[in-house]
Design a protein around this nucleic acid. Structure first.
Lengths: 226, 226
DNA sequence: AAACTCGCTTACAAATTTTTAATCGATTAA
DNA sequence: TTAATCGATTAAAAATTTGTAAGCGAGTTT
């Protein structure tokens, strides 16, 4: 990935997990730092100011939640992204996690691919603040104003529609599998029916009145470059 | 894409080791089978076609290396992953192990976690190899965009056609047996008739309008390099 | 409260892919 | 030469996948 490298701090007391995450995120072009307990995580976070911290909840000295709360209480870390990583997949800890200020929540065992997608998605979401407007042909997608323009006419998309279109348009030509779309737009915990994606795709096609999304049967959808 | 569980066969004559590995790999989501000697390993391997075999070198009836060599001499097992597991950590057996076609080599006593990491890493490595764009002459096969280009013109292939072409083109010149094609494109649990492959091959030839797939009568098909 | 919007589901129609089956041709073996 | 085998070629059936319309319920707005 050729954008400016994002710093990611990963904190987990299991060495294997650290290694796997480190390997995968590094491969994606992130600048990865690791910590093996809560205190070390705090130290490193204060030193390097990562863009994202992936925190295991169960760690020696300080739990991930404690680390999160401590950081969030300080002004300078208020905007930092935090993902919780945990074996607890019960609803209680999920809610506590999000209440304590996490941006996302991934439960173990995790597939490296899912984690990477989540991380990318999170940065993409944040990236909206960078004003990364996508322009392809006579179509403009402006995530700041939340506006899509076709041939100069503004089109209003609903949130999910917008996110879906933005995802596809973010990598024109590339096929997104239905699973990928689900986990990137809907999130991995959310379970929705099979036809949900189709219906949203349809609404987008209808509203844009443009032939810009191609169906790849049995595979997924892609934004097409004309 | 439905994440099909990877099948792992573990062969070791020590029951404890089998249990520990079984437990840990199962926990990681692998579909684990066990064998307690070389012969049994061969039998099961032929029956279930595992994605990975973890072979103890010292086993009754047949050593791990023998098993490995026997399997690797057969066309259909050529691409199977093999990890050797052994108490011998001297250089000699290491080299022999890799020479006989192993993909990795772990020496006892091993920590289950290390083994799990190795296994994950191996699958990750393999997984990396698909997703790469193949370019041969004036033909391009891009599995990310799901597009085949011939002389600059995009050609639309259906999923199975695409997968079949991608498989053949992944190793140009190499003959793929009908069995191999079936198990690699269709999966070994799916049972389809003999003519299915022919029909798909035909469609590919027709759509590409290129003489790039050669029939090797009585054997299989191969992608030919001109 | 009534009217809307959004996200999702359902049920069915439509389109496409995949498989089967039947037939033909070429090559090989008896 | 005659069978027999194997693959090629079709057409059509079967299976799968997607498109579409309609509608529900929660939450908002008017």
């Amino acid at each position: 990935m050729e954008k400016k490298e994002k710093k990611v701090l990963v904190a987990d007391d299991e060495r294997d997990i650290l290694e796997i995450i480190n390997y995968n995120l590094s491969n994606e072009g992130y600048d990865v730092y690791t910590a093996k307990d809560g205190n070390e995580a705090l130290d490193i976070a204060r030193k390097i100011h990562p863009d994202l911290i992936i925190l295991d909840i169960m760690m020696p000295y300080k739990t991930g939640m404690e680390v999160c709360q401590i950081l969030r209480s300080s002004e300078e870390f208020r905007d930092m992204l935090i993902i919780f990583l945990t074996a607890l997949n019960d609803e209680t800890s999920h809610i506590k996690g999000l209440e304590s200020g996490a941006d996302d929540y991934v439960s173990k065992p995790i597939s490296p691919k899912v984690l990477v997608s989540r991380v990318n998605a999170l940065f993409r979401r944040i990236h909206k603040e960078d004003g990364k407007t996508i322009s392809i042909g006579n179509l403009t997608i402006d995530p700041i104003k939340f506006v899509v323009t076709v041939n100069g006419n503004d089109v209003t998309l609903a949130k999910k529609e917008f996110e879906l279109l933005y995802l596809l348009a973010s990598k024109p030509g590339r096929v997104f599998l239905r699973n990928e779309i689900l986990s990137l737009v809907w999130g991995q915990e959310v379970i929705v029916g099979d036809r949900t994606i189709d219906v949203h795709i349809r609404k987008i096609r209808q509203k844009l009145d443009l032939d810009c999304i191609t169906t790849v049967k049995g595979v997924g959808y892609k934004f097409n470059l004309h």
